[in-house]
Design a protein around this nucleic acid. Structure first.
Length: 214
DNA sequence: GACCAGGCACATC
DNA sequence: GATGTGCATGGT
């Protein structure tokens, strides 16, 4: 492990000690996790929760349920999550993909190796790198590190990367330094989001930050 | 009322 | 490859 790896480990340990495990991803089923990953694109989680509640009440938070509902109807149900017409289309595209490739069964995605599954997910309109990796890590429980806006901001402020690093470069750095560990990737990403929400914001509020002095 | 939120696709240079 | 824009609701 290099110097960056040691800093990453220190970050992880400090955060875990300061705020405890985050128990991610909030969601009762792999399908729910995937829906959440699409709905939370550039959107606060509180808005996503409202949309997911609506989906549950409508009885369409499942592959067959979502397949059966009309796209405009789906859009109305997920309205609180924002970008709702766009996201209704994206959810539909994903469900179509799930039926075409895996007979509508999320668990059958596990039979595919990570690399080729990631490639396939990225071809689905509306699924980019972060959403694909969130699905692989949090819905399927396979080791891949998720990079998001918070991750880049925090790492760049702590000089682990520079701002212009690509998604894959940041991901590769972390996975190279830390080795492949689902538990670590899961918890670390969740902790970074927590840090980003509470301290490492666009306008930083560094007072009391667990990473002070690092 | 501005600013922000757990991105992504697409157009343009 | 880099940069800019549309997509929309709800909380601070």
């Amino acid at each position: 492990m290099g110097q960056k790896g040691k800093i990453l480990v220190e970050m992880y340990e400090r955060l875990l000690r300061a705020v405890g495990p985050r128990h991610w991803w909030p969601g009762e089923s792999p399908f729910e996790v995937i829906v959440g990953a699409i709905l939370t694109q550039n959107t606060s989680w509180s808005n996503v929760e409202k949309a997911i509640d609506n989906l549950k009440k409508a009885g369409i938070l499942s592959a067959p349920g979502m397949r059966g509902v009309d796209r405009d109807e789906l859009a109305q149900v997920i309205k609180p999550s924002g970008f709702y017409r766009l996201k209704a289309k994206r959810l539909k595209r994903f469900v179509d993909f799930l039926y075409e490739e895996f007979d509508g069964d999320v668990n059958r995605m596990r039979s595919q190796d990570r690399g080729s599954l990631r490639e396939k997910l990225l071809k689905v309109d509306g699924i980019g790198p972060e959403t694909a990796d969130s699905i692989i890590l949090y819905a399927l429980g396979e080791p891949i590190f998720v990079v998001d806006a918070y991750t880049k901001r925090i790492f760049s402020r702590h000089k682990l990367i520079s701002e212009n690093w690509s998604y894959e470069e940041v991901q590769g750095m972390v996975m190279g330094e830390l080795g492949r560990d689902v538990g670590i990737y899961n918890e670390f990403h969740a902790l970074l989001v927590f840090l980003g929400k509470h301290w490492c914001r666009r306008v930083p509020r560094c007072g009391g930050c667990p990473l002070e002095g690092l």
